[in-house]
């Protein structure tokens, strides 16, 4: 464990909690892409299947349980509890455009052709594109509430910190996970234009982020 990965995990947890609290307190999921949240729940489910078979550390196990619980709670709030506030016509990204290439690639590029390893690879590739429906919704509606942008900021920052973690681990322990690194870089690149908008618009106290 290193400070970059720990900071990344904290940012990830903060992002998930920000979104969950926003939906719970505003009792609404307007402006939130339910599809992205479903994809994140799938990411955690397919990545943490070794929850009961591989023990890394108490921290690792606890965080996996927390991420699974919070992501399913978020999906529950969107599609069950506050479903009447869910505007599905704005959440119109075609998930098959993401799932088909990601499934295909995880069968082609993986460390081992075993169910667990293919599912882990699938979760890594899926995570890199899971935010697409949310970013697509924002470009479609032309705006995002500031809370949603803070959520996206921490979510983007988490994987950027993981890149620093991979650089650190490469130089200190020779660790290099090519699938995770390539996918993590692609994932972070998707956030770059959002980061620019976030810094220039939201942090200047404009409240809402309105796209040009």
């Amino acid at each position: 464990m290193n400070i970059f990965r720990l900071a990344g995990d904290v940012c990830h947890l903060v992002a998930i909690i920000i979104l969950l609290l926003k939906i719970w307190r505003s009792r609404s999921c307007a402006g939130i892409s339910g599809k992205s949240q479903v994809l994140f729940a799938i990411v955690f489910t397919t990545r943490y299947l070794d929850l009961f078979t591989v023990f890394i550390s108490p921290y690792n196990t606890i965080m996996k349980v927390v991420f699974l619980a919070l992501s399913y709670a978020t999906v529950y709030l969107i599609y069950m509890r506050f479903r009447n506030t869910f505007n599905s016509e704005n959440d119109s990204f075609r998930l098959e455009f993401l799932l088909v290439p990601v499934i295909g690639l995880s069968f082609l590029e993986n460390y081992a052709f075993t169910p667990l390893e293919i599912l882990w690879t699938f979760s890594i590739f899926l995570e890199s594109v899971a935010i697409m429906p949310q970013l697509f919704m924002i470009t479609k509606t032309g705006e995002a509430e500031s809370i949603t942008t803070h959520y996206l900021f921490f979510l983007g920052l988490y994987r950027a910190l993981y890149i620093a973690n991979w650089v650190w681990r490469y130089h200190t322990e020779g660790f290099f996970d090519q699938i995770a690194v390539v996918s993590g870089v692609v994932q972070t690149i998707f956030y770059i234009d959002f980061f620019y908008l976030y810094v220039t618009k939201v942090l200047r106290g404009r409240g809402k982020m309105t796209l040009p």
């Binding site: 882990w120 996970d177 090519q178």
Partner: peptide, 10 residues
């Protein structure tokens, strides 16, 4: 690509 023995990251 080096094959990580096990996935110790979240």
């Amino acid at each position: 690509s080096m094959e990580p023995l096990r996935h110790d990251e979240l």
